[in-house]
Simulated scan of single mutants.
Amino acid sequence: MTMSENTRLGARIRAYRNMRHMTVRALATQAGASASFISQLERGQTSSSVGMLRRIASALGLTIADLFSEEDDVGHRVVRRAQRPELPTGPGARKFLISQRPLQNMEMYAGEFEPGSSTGDEPYTHGDAQEIFLVLRGRITLWLGPAGSAAAHVLEQGDSVEYRTSVPHRVVNENDETAEVLWVVSPPTPSA
């Protein structure tokens, strides 16, 4: 890569890191690199191996292709309901990505939970961002906190709750009708 290409790549990495409110040290830790290396890379003063770029992209919740995309101004991005990417979930539950990649300032998901379904038996966490959970239809129980001491929040249509993604959470539909929900996370959290 030329010095100019290194500079553009470094600027994109810095921009995505800043969007996620990550420090250089936090990105370095998640990518398995030194903070000085990440700093030099962001300033275009060094280049990187493909393996390291993959780890950096993963830590930022991106693909390696996102790091090289020159489409900073993508304009309006329409996602049709039938074209939403579906994420793996448990039986009776479906979760769809509404935001388009590369995730920039926020990520949004829609979910459907059939009666008796959940996000899984154990609460989960992802990064440390702000998350808003909204019930669009039906009734849901959202458990917040570590297993064994989590607080149950029963939410009906139109109810919402806000919490950090670092707090263990779990969604359960204990009712007899399908529920629809929405998650909004800002800044986007790293991919698992």
Rank of each mutant, 00 (worst) to 15 (best):
M1I: 02
M1S: 07
T2L: 06
S4R: 09
S4G: 00
S4T: 04
E5D: 00
T7N: 10
G10D: 08
G10S: 08
A11C: 09
R12T: 01
R14W: 04
R17Y: 05
R17Q: 02
R20S: 07
R25H: 12
R25P: 01
A26S: 13
A26E: 14
L27R: 11
Q30T: 07
A31N: 03
A31P: 02
A33G: 04
S34D: 08
I38K: 03
L41V: 00
E42L: 01
S47G: 15
S49I: 08
G51W: 00
L53R: 03
S58C: 02
S58W: 05
A59C: 00
L60S: 03
L60W: 04
G61N: 04
G61D: 04
T63P: 00
T63H: 05
T63C: 05
D66Q: 06
F68I: 05
D72Q: 14
D73F: 10
D73V: 12
V74F: 09
V79S: 06
V79I: 09
R81N: 00
A82I: 08
A82K: 06
R84K: 13
R84L: 12
L87K: 02
T89M: 09
T89C: 08
G90L: 11
G90E: 15
P91S: 15
G92S: 11
G92V: 11
A93F: 05
A93S: 15
R94T: 10
K95V: 11
L97V: 07
L97K: 07
I98P: 00
I98T: 12
S99N: 14
S99A: 15
R101C: 01
P102Q: 12
L103V: 02
L103C: 04
E107T: 06
M108Y: 06
M108E: 07
Y109A: 00
G111E: 05
E112T: 14
F113P: 03
F113Y: 13
E114L: 14
E114D: 13
G116W: 09
G116K: 15
S118R: 11
S118Q: 07
T119K: 08
T119Y: 06
G120K: 13
G120F: 07
G120H: 10
E122Y: 04
Y124W: 13
Y124E: 03
H126E: 03
H126V: 05
G127C: 11
G127I: 11
D128A: 15
D128K: 08
Q130S: 14
E131Q: 12
E131K: 01
I132A: 09
L136W: 06
L136E: 05
R137C: 08
R137A: 12
G138I: 09
L142W: 01
L142A: 02
W143M: 07
L144Y: 04
G145H: 03
G145Q: 06
G148T: 03
G148M: 08
A151W: 02
L155S: 07
L155D: 08
E156S: 15
D159K: 06
S160I: 02
Y163H: 09
V167G: 04
P168D: 02
R170Q: 12
R170T: 00
V171G: 01
N173R: 05
N173Y: 03
E174L: 14
N175M: 13
D176H: 10
E177F: 00
A179T: 07
E180P: 01
E180N: 10
V181Q: 03
L182F: 01
V184W: 05
V185I: 15
V185R: 04
S186N: 14
P187T: 13
T189Y: 06
T189C: 13
P190E: 13
P190N: 12
P190M: 10
A192L: 13
